[in-house]
Design a protein around this nucleic acid. Structure first.
Lengths: 135, 135
DNA sequence: CATACTGTAATTATTTTTATTACAGTACAA
DNA sequence: TTGTACTGTAATAAAAATAATTACAGTATG
């Protein structure tokens, strides 16, 4: 996952947790993350789909956490943004070679296991705990 | 890590382990992985730098494992190819925002922890064990 | 109705990743 | 000593992934 989406989502959620009584606009968030507001809106759209964020349209609108930070696990954020396996992708090897024929099956299984380890590890950290570090 | 390098390296090492008495040519390996031989040579060059593979130039040359498969841990392969953190990269946030100012520090620490966890998990799997699955 | 927002699509730009080509250098073996 | 079969590596091009930007319709508020 050679991208910045996890960082962006955690940043957004941290802001929302820090100012949990207000609806924050995408412009405000974009100013903090230092990216274009459209990027933030797209990321928020994804976080909404994953039930981590709620938002309100129109004047005075913006986003807020869907639940208290203590109820949001970092594994949920990870799952919201993850697109590929931790260990990467596979080739399309030659099926006429005994190794090529089976390697993806064995790799996939390793990939799944490794992804699950990461999820497990992140599942014991809440957004609340992460946000506490900023004090 | 949205690439195929871990898969390619594991595939190479699996072939070398399976035919451990021969020097395998990059052409042969490329045929099994189903990529260009130059890609294989580049990956092998990296595996050599990480002391996982030895190779011999000239006619009859090729590559072989630097050590028995039982002495090669998958964490070593991972470290040989890893380029970015498991959880991805960071933004360059606004330092004038309290969250923006510190978020990378906290993210980095989380990134390190997560990477280490993955390494730890992969360190208990040897190439030998992986290769056994092909039987 | 003006204003301040979201939601989303379309487009472009940038960066990363992969594939391809080429060729100098090395070692074996006839 | 020369042909052959390799490695090593650089250069380039192609493809794919990622990020940035622009634009604008739709929505809620006062």
């Amino acid at each position: 996952m050679n991208n910045v989406r996890f960082a962006t989502s955690v940043h957004i959620l941290t802001l929302l947790a820090t100012m949990k009584d207000e609806y924050l606009s995408s412009d405000f968030i974009a100013g903090s993350v230092n990216v274009n507001a459209a990027v933030i809106r797209k990321e928020i759209s994804n976080l909404k789909a994953c039930h981590l964020v709620d938002s309100k349209e129109g004047k005075g609108g913006g986003s807020t956490l869907a639940r208290p930070a203590s109820k949001i696990k970092l594994s949920e954020v990870y799952e919201a943004v993850r697109q590929v396996h931790v260990l990467g992708r596979s080739n399309t090897p030659n099926p006429r070679c005994p190794v090529g024929r089976d390697v993806n099956k064995h790799l996939e299984s390793l990939y799944e296991d490794t992804d699950n380890y990461v999820k497990q590890k992140l599942s014991v950290i809440t957004l609340e705990e992460f946000v506490k570090k900023f004090k």
